[in-house]
């Protein structure tokens, strides 16, 4: 892992912890961006952590580019010595796989896809070596996921699968991006899953849809009353497969204000996870079941 520092125009410092994705790179990027935030450097206006990199936006009228760069570099040792441990939450996200809305959309954009003769799930199952779509769906939801970045558009989480690298699912993005994606689509691109927080353009493969809102600018949804964006980096997610009846029931509960997401507080320790992935996951899932 070799840190790379560069400028993005005259207003951004960009720091890449590694050119490949790993939880080590994520943890280092998160703790280093936290160290920059804690340093309260005058002239810094935004700090954006990403999967294996982060960005600092600054006002060059307040702090010279070389000075902010030097200050950010000084904080690297802090990130290296930081504990790779998070007190976080695990959240159960219901997913209606093979739903009719993403199906209608993926048929509409078939000419932009690698395999125009099947669905996105057919293709993803095939290239990942699964005998059936249902086996693939099980691989998608059986183990938890880590929110490694929030962004692209308002409140959209990128999720990284908490399994051995050779077990991680990988699917390319559409050959050419769609101009439409249903709101709350559960998508997949590269090694990341995501939830489209709003309807719009997108290039990730579409697997299903969740009935649980994750972005509400009006803050009317009960679990979004405190803040309009639900996810933050470091959250852990467990997908729960649901059918149409459950989907409709949750949509109705969200509308009448009675839906409460299932959430449990957990500790995530990267070294412990690397030593025993399935065991660490089992403990977190148990906490969720008790919630």
């Amino acid at each position: 892992m070799k840190t790379r520092y560069t400028f993005g125009g005259d207003e951004h410092v960009y720091v890449e912890m590694d050119d490949e994705m790993s939880l080590d790179a994520f943890f280092k990027s998160l703790s280093m961006s936290n160290a920059v935030r804690d340093a309260k450097i005058e002239g810094v206006t935004e700090i954006c952590p990403a999967n294996a990199s982060f960005q600092v936006r600054f006002d060059p009228d307040v702090i010279a580019p070389d000075d902010i760069m030097a200050k950010v570099k000084e904080l690297e040792h802090k990130a290296e010595s930081a504990e790779k441990r998070l007190t976080t939450r695990i959240i159960e996200i219901p997913v209606f796989y093979k739903d009719p809305w993403t199906h209608e959309t993926l048929m509409r954009f078939r000419e932009r896809h690698q395999d125009p003769n099947g669905t996105d799930l057919d293709y993803a199952a095939k290239i990942n070596g699964y005998a059936s779509v249902d086996d693939f769906i099980e691989a998608h939801h059986s183990q938890p996921w880590f929110v490694s970045m929030v962004g692209f558009v308002a409140g959209l989480p990128f999720l990284y699968q908490l399994v051995e690298r050779d077990k991680q699912l990988q699917v390319p993005k559409y050959l050419s991006p769609r101009t439409d994606t249903p709101k709350l689509t559960v998508g997949y691109g590269g090694c990341f899953s995501c939830i489209y927080s709003v309807r719009g353009a997108g290039g990730y493969q579409m697997f299903g849809v969740t009935p649980m809102p994750i972005y509400d600018p009006e803050q009317k949804v009960a679990h979004l009353k405190d803040f309009m964006v639900f996810f933050k980096p470091g959250d852990i997610v467990k997908w729960k497969p649901i059918d149409r009846a459950e989907y409709d029931a949750i949509v109705a509960a969200v509308e009448d204000g009675t839906y409460v997401p299932r959430i449990a507080k957990v500790e995530f320790d990267l070294d412990e996870f690397n030593a025993d992935m399935r065991g660490t996951n089992a403990k977190m899932l148990e906490a969720l079941n008790d919630a």
Binding site: Y14, E16, D18, D19, E20, M21, S22, C48, A50, N51, A52, S53, F54, Q55, M149, G151, F152, F158, R165, P172, K173, G189, G190, C191, F192
Partner: peptide
């Protein structure tokens, strides 16, 4: 690199 995607213009999603 792992996680970047197959096209040479792809990177691991960043800011």
């Amino acid at each position: 690199p792992f996680g970047a995607g197959a096209d040479p213009s792809n990177i691991v999603d960043g800011c």
